[in-house]
C-alpha cells in the first residue's frame, strides 16, 4: 500500500540577497502536501545536485535574484545529467526577465515562474509533471 509523496528541494544559490521568495514557495508546497527539503542560502550547484540525489527529490526549485540564472540553471542541469539524474525536474523562479525564459526552457528547465506568478501555478505544474516524468 503505497503512500508516495512529492519531494522538492528548494535552493537559493549565490551570494546575493534574501530567501524570502524561496520560503514563500516552500510553505505553499508544504501546504499542498509535499515534502520540502530546504537548503537555505549560498548553495553551490554541486551542493544542490548532491542534495537532490541524497534526498531522492522529484524536483529541484531554484530561486535566483542575482541575474546569474543562466549560469546556475545550466550548471545544475549539466551536473544532474552527469550524475545520471536528469529525471529530477528543475524549475525556477525569482527575478528572471521574460526574454530569458525560453532559453532556460531549451536548456532543460521544466518550468520558470516569473515574479507575480501565484504559487498555485507551481503546485499544479508539479502535481502534473512529477508523476509524468520518466
Amino acid at each position: 500500500m503505497s503512500d508516495k509523496k512529492i519531494r522538492v528541494v528548494i535552493a537559493k544559490p549565490g551570494l546575493d540577497g534574501h530567501d524570502r521568495g524561496a520560503k514563500v514557495i516552500a510553505r505553499a508546497l508544504r501546504d499542498a502536501g509535499m515534502e520540502i527539503i530546504y537548503t537555505g542560502l549560498r548553495q553551490t550547484p554541486e551542493q544542490i545536485v548532491t542534495t537532490a540525489i541524497q534526498e531522492d527529490a522529484d524536483a529541484v526549485g531554484i530561486s535566483v535574484l542575482s541575474g546569474a540564472h543562466q549560469f546556475y540553471f545550466k550548471r545544475v542541469i549539466d551536473l544532474l545529467k552527469e550524475k545520471n539524474a536528469s529525471d529530477i525536474l528543475v524549475f525556477g523562479g525569482g527575478v528572471i526577465p521574460e526574454d530569458d525564459i525560453p532559453g532556460l526552457l531549451d536548456m532543460g528547465a521544466g518550468a520558470i515562474f516569473g515574479p507575480g506568478t501565484p504559487t498555485s501555478t507551481a503546485i499544479e505544474w508539479l502535481e502534473k509533471a512529477v508523476p509524468a516524468r520518466t
Binding site: 508544504r30 502536501g33 527539503i37 537548503t39 548532491t50
Partner: peptide
Amino acid sequence: SPYTGGAILADRLRMQRHTDDAGVFMRS
C-alpha cells in the same frame, strides 16, 4: 503537518558543509 501531510525539512541547513564530502550521506 497532520492536516496536509506536507513538511518543511530544514535540518540539513546546519549540516550543509558536509554536502561535498563523499563520506557523508544525509537524508531528511
